[in-house]
Write a protein that binds this DNA or RNA. Structure first.
Lengths: 169, 169
DNA sequence: CTGCGATAGTTTCCGTGGAAAATAACTTAG
DNA sequence: CTAAGTTATTTTCCACGGAAACTATCGCAG
């Protein structure tokens, strides 16, 4: 079965420890879930290095990228931003506050519904995100350089399937 | 190529948006990295539901689980805990503070080196983590229920390979 | 029209973790 | 043996985001 080959990683060692201490439990799910967790942190750290070059935090980049992806005129409501960034409405407000202070986005009240705020990229914001996204995607490509094209496709498919199959997705 | 089949997920839609807005960039890495990120949050939320039942935060559980995995007498130094939990030493101090207040771990000074602190599970801590880990692993298994055994193994292997191949791992 | 319940954002308060300064204890050159 | 440098942990200060209360506005029943 799964032993400790010379290419064991930290997660293999964790699973081995559990197997020794709690042989009554099935610790194999850790192979997948533990690795997703660890990879998330490792990747995040490396992605943040690029954001730093543009004086952006992860959260700010998410907002800018969402606006840019939406296409001209690069505007979304706060609610739409909340949906695309998976954070609470309070967090969106604060991220937009910071970006507004930095002059990268602007806020205006929606005309049809005065409750809604429309957040849009400024010229500077647009220029910055266009540059940052290029650097970001290039960075992501280098992070995946260790996998073949086929492996990336297989990995992406399995991750998509896992995501869609989560209880209560 | 990659189109928008009926089973497209949020990440597929993000990639499609980038492709439309910035066809000059290769956005395919998002298929892997974006999904790892999204899955991390989705999984974390579901794992936290179990921790909540034991009045534990993610961080506290990490500490307890590390101590339990280490085997009898369930003791590690603060530095060892830092290594196994991937957080800063300051965060370890605070997590241990909370657990100590809850009576789940105890701290003592190492005899050979008075700078080192040895953190150990109390009887209550040991009992709690043994129960919580069983629930946690069972929970993880249900989260992976949508994948076959083979798919899980393939996914684990690809994630291991990706982790080991990260630049400067 | 006039409330009253829903909806969109914002504000407030709090918990968690990072970075770096501070503390304590070990080690070693001289 | 002692001062200077190192190492282990803690402390302090701060940034970020969540939860829930709050504000403003909308839309509808009567």
């Amino acid at each position: 079965m799964t032993q400790q080959p010379s290419d064991a990683d930290a997660v293999d060692r964790i699973v081995a420890q559990w197997r020794r201490e709690r042989p009554d439990l099935d610790s194999t799910p850790v192979h997948v879930i533990g690795r997703i967790s660890r990879l998330h942190w490792a990747l995040d750290e490396r992605l943040a290095q690029v954001f730093d070059r543009y004086d952006l935090g992860r959260g700010e980049f998410d907002i800018l990228a969402s606006l840019r992806r939406a296409g001209a005129p690069f505007e979304l409501t706060a609610g739409e931003l909340r949906g695309s960034t998976m954070v609470t409405s309070g967090a969106v407000t604060k991220r937009v506050d910071r970006l507004e202070r930095a002059g990268l986005v602007s806020r205006r009240t929606a005309h049809e519904d005065a409750r809604g705020r429309i957040i849009g990229l400024t010229e500077r914001g647009r220029a910055l995100v266009d540059e940052a996204v290029a650097a970001h995607l290039h960075n992501e490509a280098t992070l995946l350089a260790g996998l073949t094209t086929d492996e990336r496709a297989t990995l992406a498919d399995l991750l998509r399937k896992l995501g869609r199959s989560l209880p209560g997705a």
